[in-house]
């Protein structure tokens, strides 16, 4: 899947701060929320950002820390808007 890595090997808190400050819409999801066939893990509240159809989200790997990824997907953006709790427009 085509994706952009915005940041790598950051802390989960840094990922949340970036999303809160740099995306147009911010959504809150519980740990285990599935996006792009991946179960998102993290310290609640887990934030996802959306700009149009582009989703920004944290992806944590045990050996490499948290990555901040950006993927363009109208389907997933729509699903998040319908399923997740919006915390900021």
């Amino acid at each position: 899947m085509k994706h952009e890595i915005i940041a790598r090997q950051i802390s989960f808190t840094e990922a949340s701060s970036y999303i809160r400050s740099n995306t147009a819409e911010v959504y809150e999801v519980p740990p285990g929320f599935k996006i792009f066939d991946v179960y998102i893990i993290g310290i609640p509240p887990i934030l996802l950002g959306i700009d149009g159809t582009v989703i920004t989200f944290p992806y944590t790997k045990p050996c490499h820390g948290t990555f901040l990824l950006r993927i363009d997907s109208p389907e997933e953006a729509g699903r998040i808007r319908a399923a997740a709790k919006r915390v900021r427009k």
Partner: peptide, 15 residues
């Protein structure tokens, strides 16, 4: 032992 581990335990505690 690292930040990722904190994310895993926080997730499991929630789930």
């Amino acid at each position: 032992h690292n930040d990722a581990g904190v994310a895993y335990v926080a997730s499991l505690a929630a789930m």
